[in-house]
Design a protein around this nucleic acid. Structure first.
Length: 261
DNA sequence: ATTGTGGCCTGCCCGC
DNA sequence: TGCGGGCAGGCCACAA
């Protein structure tokens, strides 16, 4: 599903194909997809006639800046895909259809010379905002320093995984990447966030950086080494131990009871 | 403030 | 063969 690696792929797609192009029209057929009471007419007034000048990402939020100072914020939920001129930002997403049904196009920008930038989202869990509050998000997981990661975990009795998923503390880690990261860092998801020893904190930061880069390179949050084994009967690909499954931080969580401590 | 829970959304998969 | 129930998780509202 769209976590940091997928949204980074969307960002690169938008940057490569849409920058410099003028917005000629806005298609907003689904009022539900416009968040915070936003009206389609407001989006039209803010964007039509302007030109896309930057494609940025913070966590799972994609921000498209225009030359008139307004910014479009796109969220992809669990099943949202970005498609520009018929080219999709990623191949497959886990937990969703492989089809590209036009009826699932929830929002689109028509671009000069006949192109289209659209969000195709079967489950409608994504959304659109104008001038998103980027400061409400924590530091981006790709560039977070060890000190920033430490601050995100400090003083918290919540499960480590819950804190990693808290987008206001650290932006970009979703459920699949959290399981992959903790498996690689050999840390139990249920550990109190503030219980990490200094060496464990350094290890978590090192594995966060590595995991994010690896999954961006592979092209998806579901392309980790643990993820294929997150199934009933699955075993740890490192040591063969049967994986455990439970709900942690409100999400289905899989881990190796042997090497994750 | 912190932490946990439930609901939203809907395509897909499993068992009957 | 069709049907119904459960499942997936990002995000938000709400409660304790």
């Amino acid at each position: 599903m769209p976590e940091l690696p997928e949204v980074e792929a969307y960002r690169r797609l938008a940057e490569a194909t849409a920058l410099g192009r003028r917005i000629t029209a806005v298609e907003a057929p689904d009022p539900w997809f416009l968040k915070g009471g936003l009206a389609a007419a407001e989006v039209v007034a803010a964007l039509v006639g302007s030109r896309l000048v930057a494609a940025r990402r913070r966590g799972k939020l994609l921000v498209l800046d225009t030359d008139r100072g307004r910014a479009l914020g796109l969220r992809f939920g669990m099943t949202g895909r970005l498609v520009v001129d018929g080219t999709a930002g990623v191949g497959r997403l886990l937990y969703t259809s492989g089809r590209d049904d036009p009826g699932w196009d929830r929002f689109a920008l028509r671009l000069a010379r006949g192109g289209r930038l659209r969000v195709n989202d079967p489950r409608r869990l994504g959304g659109v905002v104008l001038d998103p509050d980027e400061e409400a998000l924590g530091p981006d997981a790709r560039s977070a320093t060890a000190a920033q990661l430490g601050a995100a975990l400090a003083g918290s009795a919540a499960p480590l995984k819950a804190r990693l998923l808290d987008q206001t503390r650290l932006a970009g880690v979703g459920n699949l990447m959290a399981d992959e990261l903790l498996w690689r860092a050999a840390l139990l998801p249920t550990r109190p966030a503030a219980s990490l020893l200094p060496a464990e904190g350094r290890r978590l930061h090192r594995e966060l950086r590595r995991t994010v880069e690896l999954l961006i390179e592979r092209g998806g949050s579901h392309l980790g080494d643990l993820i294929p084994h997150r199934l009933p009967g699955g075993t740890c690909p490192r040591d063969g131990t049967p994986l455990r499954r439970a709900t942690v931080g409100g999400r289905t969580t899989w881990w190796c009871p042997s090497h994750q401590r």
